[in-house]
Design a protein around this nucleic acid. Structure first.
Lengths: 230, 230
DNA sequence: ATTTATAAACGTAATAATAACGTTTATTTT
DNA sequence: AAAATAAACGTTATTATTACGTTTATAAAT
């Protein structure tokens, strides 16, 4: 083995951006129409080649910001795709990152500027290359991640109600949860702070608003505490 | 973005091969002396560049077989390293794979042929580039993996005793486990079959030998069963 | 022969976590 | 004033976990 120019390959980062829409209670995937040939015009995850003087995590951040305007969100590398034949244009290794955001009107607007759009994860179009596989992998990863981290809170407004949180976890798991047990388990972690305000948009009675206590969470984690949600 | 030759990078696979030695009850890392400059002579994980017509998983398999002679073992991609400055010789993206084997005399011999050697994971030399980080990451991954998969059984002889299995999990977790509770939990999964033989090498009384029921395991998993060991 | 030492195997009881339900409350609409 | 409805609260049976004590089989020492 030697540092031989002929062995070089293209390296891309692709970002699976999942957005939770509180209104429709659905998880959505950010897609855009591929601009370059071959396969221009097909639906694709957002992604680009890494630059010469750019770390891979930085490349992923750059891509995310370019297409969503977001620059300080959770973004994590989850897998690599490197079959020889995955891209008809040449040898391309793609590093998959994922991110989770809450889908509000602002994000929807920003995204539209780039000709991108959101598809419900339950109803996706055919994706280019192996991007369909990537989404499938990311969805499984989301599930396992949701169990051990309070990642759900990233997907809701800063103030949220327990029914909203419940619906979010139901969307992640793809099935119903017992609201009484859910409430008990979430509150027993002592990471939520109930406010003296109610959100009345969803019911006559109104639901109390809560806030996630980030500090308490980090404090617990630093003590080696293991969290298991839902 | 375009398919532009100047953007290409070297892509390597590095394999973190962990071997469990039943005799010394220790987890070991396979290392070899780096052959090429720069940094030739430093301890390194086994790894090479991917070939032009070779998938990344295939490249990892090739590397593993070349240095260990093993060709049908568990091998899984776990992470990617891609800082711009991680290799002084140029832009190299390295995909980290890991594998787990049981360290018997045969493997020790095969490995020696390639100038490689085993270091206890508790007492490693300084490693080249970011390979020390890779080992640290792999160790954490091992821990989380050991909780949810019966991966321990891969690391013992086909017939093993419960005390051997206990010591293995103690090596993985790095602390002691209650033998009575361990025994109960492992046996309650119903995945072990007790044989009518005893191993007397470890005690006067002798310990019953067990076999892992692979079929039963796959049957359970295919039904969506979630296993939690230890 | 009997005792001793030792790892292996077996057992139990207190505590905590989970799952599966029923009931009450606050509010708006009728 | 009654009906409807989402939200909030409560109870119990079952299961899992933890932290221990006890017995057993055998080889070596007396």
């Amino acid at each position: 083995m030697a540092y031989d120019e002929s062995k070089k390959a293209w390296v891309a980062v692709d970002c699976l951006v999942l957005g939770y829409d509180v209104e429709t209670k659905s998880i959505n995937v950010l897609s855009f129409k591929r601009q370059i040939d071959p396969l221009a015009g097909q639906w694709s995850l957002i992604g680009e080649f890494i630059n010469e003087e750019e770390g891979i995590d930085d490349a992923a951040k750059r891509v995310l910001e370019k297409y969503t305007g977001l620059n300080d969100v959770f973004l994590e590398q989850i897998s690599v795709y490197g079959n020889t034949n995955r891209d008809p244009a040449g040898r391309v290794i793609s590093i998959l990152y994922w991110s989770l955001i809450k889908l509000d009107d602002i994000h929807k607007g920003i995204v539209n500027k780039h000709g991108a759009r959101w598809f419900s994860i339950e109803d996706l179009p055919k994706m280019v290359l192996d991007h369909g596989e990537m989404i499938k992998f990311g969805r499984e990863y989301l599930l396992s991640k949701a169990k051990n981290t309070p990642l759900g809170f990233e997907l809701l407004p800063q103030k949220f109600t327990l029914p909203q949180l419940l619906h979010l976890y139901e969307a992640i798991y793809g099935n119903q949860l017992d609201d009484r047990n859910f409430r008990k388990k979430i509150l027993s972690t002592d990471l939520l702070q109930r406010l003296n305000e109610k959100d009345k948009s969803g019911s006559k009675k109104g639901a109390f608003l809560y806030q996630f206590n980030q500090e308490k969470y980090h404090e617990l984690m630093s003590k080696g505490y293991h969290l298991e949600l839902v």
